[in-house]
Structures are given as structure tokens and as C-alpha cells.
């Protein structure tokens, strides 16, 4: 697109690369979050509980 004049390549590259970096961080946060949640559920499924959760169960 020539709407931004002779330096449009620099402008598009700046916006494009910034979008790629931000999307990479968003993807990393989402993938990491899913991985941590999966690991936590695996542990809980094996009966490993936090001390506070175990204490709540014994008092109730």
C-alpha cells in the first residue's frame, strides 16, 4: 500500500514485527498457563493435595 508514502515499508515492518512479538508473548502466556493447569490437575488426580486443602477436608 502506498498510502504512507516512500517510507511505507518501514512503517509496515514496524507494525508487523511489533504485532508478531506481542502475539508471541500472548501465545507463550496462554500455552504456559494451560501446561501449568494440566500439571496441577494431574497431581490432584493422583491424590496429591495442598496442605490447606487436606486440612479443610479433615475438619469438615
Amino acid at each position: 500500500m502506498s498510502g504512507f508514502g516512500e517510507h511505507s515499508g518501514y512503517i509496515f515492518a514496524a507494525y508487523g514485527l511489533s504485532a508478531v512479538i506481542v502475539l508471541a508473548v500472548v501465545a507463550w502466556v496462554l500455552v504456559d498457563g494451560r501446561a501449568q493447569n494440566r500439571r496441577l490437575k494431574d497431581l490432584e488426580a493422583r491424590g496429591v493435595r495442598r496442605r490447606s486443602a487436606a486440612r479443610r477436608e479433615t475438619t469438615s
Binding site: 502466556v29 504456559d32 498457563g33 501449568q36 493447569n37 500439571r39 496441577l40 497431581l43 490432584e44 493422583r46 491424590g47 496429591v48 493435595r49 495442598r50 496442605r51 487436606a54
Partner: peptide, 24 residues
């Protein structure tokens, strides 16, 4: 995510120290 990572680490330590699974 970091809180979950530390919680998982703590649970793994519990699992390693108490074979039955649930810590008192």
C-alpha cells in the same frame, strides 16, 4: 502462571516426601 508453577513445585515436594500423597 508463576503462582501455579510454584504450587506444582510445592505439591511435587509433598508427593516426594509423603508416599501416601496427602500431607497432614
Amino acid at each position: 502462571n508463576e503462582i501455579l508453577r510454584r504450587r506444582i513445585r510445592a505439591l511435587r515436594l509433598v508427593a516426594a516426601s509423603v508416599p501416601a500423597g496427602v500431607a497432614a
